[in-house]
């Protein structure tokens, strides 16, 4: 009798684990959009780009998670390349690099950075992943019609050797159920060419 109760109790533990797992499934649909930018490092040591992401319609209403992934590939040795991304408030103008320390003081707008892979044989030299606030900040039921998210992406390198860098931004949104119609627009442009 005791043995049977113990077995049933273990079944309840296993069942609870399965229910907990099944109640948070990964997204069943994923919407992707990519943007690319070619940056040339000649005399300047820093290049800045602005990435705008706009999502609207049912796609936005049903999205339950999203990420922005940034990749850079360079045509030469770039072991000192630093890639950073800073979320911009929707109404903020592009900041001057001298304002960076002030912006970094705000934890909500903290910049994320990644240094390039010292392995120069690797074709993807720098990679950075940033969660999208659009798909996480509000529960789907309370969302407005659309959401715009902007990032200031900065590439810096101390050395002065000329370098061509391809910057790619991949935006992914995911959600449950069937693929929902809507708009996912990604615009990547150099802020000061």
């Amino acid at each position: 009798m005791k043995c049977r109760r113990a077995l049933l109790a273990k079944l309840v533990i296993g069942g609870s684990a399965l229910v907990a797992l099944a109640s948070s499934p990964p997204p069943e649909w994923v919407a992707q959009q990519q943007a690319h930018l070619h940056l040339v490092f000649d005399e300047r040591k820093e290049r800045t780009a602005i990435l705008s992401i706009e999502v609207s319609g049912k796609l936005y209403a049903s999205a339950q998670g999203g990420t922005l992934e940034l990749f850079t590939t360079a045509d030469g040795a770039a072991g000192d390349l630093l890639l950073s991304a800073r979320p911009l408030p929707s109404d903020e103008a592009v900041s001057d690099p001298t304002e960076a320390s002030q912006a970094d003081a705000n934890p909500e707008l903290e910049a994320l950075a990644a240094r390039s892979d010292p392995d120069l044989s690797s074709p993807i030299m720098t990679w950075l992943s940033v969660p999208l606030e659009c798909a996480q900040s509000e529960p789907p039921a309370r969302r407005p019609k659309s959401c715009v998210e902007r990032f200031e992406i900065t590439l810096t390198r101390p050395s002065q050797m000329p370098l061509n860098v391809d910057l790619s931004a991949l935006v992914e949104l995911g959600g449950p159920g069937q693929t929902a119609p809507g708009t996912l627009q990604v615009l990547l442009e150099e802020s000061d060419p």
């Binding site: 109760r5 113990a6 049933l8 109790a9 273990k10 309840v12 229910v19 099944a22």
Partner: peptide, 24 residues
């Protein structure tokens, strides 16, 4: 020991089982 003498009564209590069924 492989039994669950202490917690099995609570795990198999109707309240726990009902809550688990409701959750699912």
């Amino acid at each position: 020991k492989t039994g669950l003498p202490c917690s099995s009564a609570a795990l198999l209590h109707p309240v726990t089982l009902t809550a688990l069924a409701l959750w699912a």
